[in-house]
């Protein structure tokens, strides 16, 4: 095991973390502002990936694919909010879980109906197909680009929420929805915008991951569950918490898969170490979440 290999894994963890952040940011916004638990957030990720794959196949242009993913996911999110979810804000979490579970079935089966069961593939854009040399390590440029896009988005989101009029309204909606309605702000419209924003971020994540994994029905749910872990670790409603949680989960998961079998190999025979190590590694982020919740029941930055 060399330092180069460790740095490569660390970067992979960071790339996974920024991806998770894009998913978790929308979830935590919707939790925080509307008090809604949305299981169908993974479907928006899938919509983004499928839109990107279709647009890329039609035009061959990756930038155009990204725009299509953002637009399709935002549109799907806005429709989802206006047709279904806005009736659920005042219901208990149980109704929200069931309704959004039903939405997963509808989106997944609908997508399978339109696109079939075979996965689609999305190529890495030509400009980013090579590798970048960092010291003695050559790292895929595309993965580095994902990290850059993720960090840029995080900064943009921070600026949007802390420096713009819409951000003030979002924060006010989180604190006291009656009050901002009384101040003449159209709450229904604000909620739709917040939801579409979260959906667009999920769509962006789906489109970005397209060239790394295959684009297929059901791709959203594993990521959704990890994004939930991120949101709970970070503290529900906190964007900063989502960022911290996403990096923590991304790095823990990636390094765990890499290091645990090696570490256990020093005390066990190799085949047992691989088995135990990979079992422990796939459980690691859930163990991390349980530990953090026992230590701080509202998450790292929750109130």
């Amino acid at each position: 095991m060399t330092a180069t290999l460790l740095i490569e894994q660390l970067l992979n963890g960071l790339q996974f973390g920024t991806m998770l952040f894009l998913m978790a940011a929308g979830l935590t916004l919707v939790f925080g502002v509307m008090g809604l638990i949305n299981l169908a957030h993974g479907s928006l990720y899938m919509v983004g990936a499928f839109a990107a794959a279709t647009a890329a196949a039609a035009t061959g242009n990756f930038l155009f694919a990204l725009v299509a993913a953002l637009a399709a996911a935002a549109l799907a999110g806005a429709l989802m909010e206006m047709l279904v979810l806005r009736r659920l804000y005042r219901r208990d979490h149980l109704d929200q879980v069931l309704a959004t579970f039903a939405l997963i079935l509808i989106f997944s089966e609908g997508t399978r109906w339109v696109f079939g069961s075979f996965p689609l593939y999305l190529d890495v854009p030509k400009a980013l197909a090579g590798t970048v040399r960092i010291g003695s390590l050559s790292y895929p440029a595309y993965r580095l680009a994902i990290i850059v896009i993720g960090v840029t988005t995080a900064i943009g989101l921070w600026a949007l929420i802390n420096r713009t009029r819409l951000g003030v309204q979002i924060r006010a909606g989180e604190a006291d929805r009656e009050m901002i309605a009384a101040l003449g702000i159209d709450i229904a419209r604000l909620y739709t915008i917040v939801f579409a924003l979260g959906a667009a971020l999920a769509g962006l994540a789906g489109a970005l991951i397209g060239p790394i994994q295959s684009v297929q029905v059901g791709m959203g749910e594993p990521v959704l569950i990890m994004a939930f872990v991120v949101v709970v670790i970070g503290g529900i409603g906190s964007i900063k918490g989502a960022l911290a949680g996403a990096i923590l989960v991304g790095v823990t998961d990636t390094l765990g898969r890499f290091l645990l079998p090696v570490l256990l190999g020093t005390v066990m025979e190799p085949s047992a170490a691989t088995a135990v190590g990979s079992a422990l590694a796939s459980m690691s982020i859930y163990i991390l979440m349980a530990l953090i919740l026992v230590w701080r029941p509202t998450g790292l930055m929750g109130s």
Binding site: F31, I37, H93, V97, I225, F228, V229, V231, V232, I236, A279, S282, M283, Y286, I287, M289, A290, L293, V294, P297, T298, G299
Partner: peptide, 21 residues
């Protein structure tokens, strides 16, 4: 130890832990 949305999520997390195991 938790409640509300946290309870939903942490029970999900424990189940996932066993699933991956």
């Amino acid at each position: 130890r938790t409640g509300g949305v946290h309870f939903i999520m942490i029970t999900l997390a424990f189940a996932q832990m066993i699933y991956y195991f």
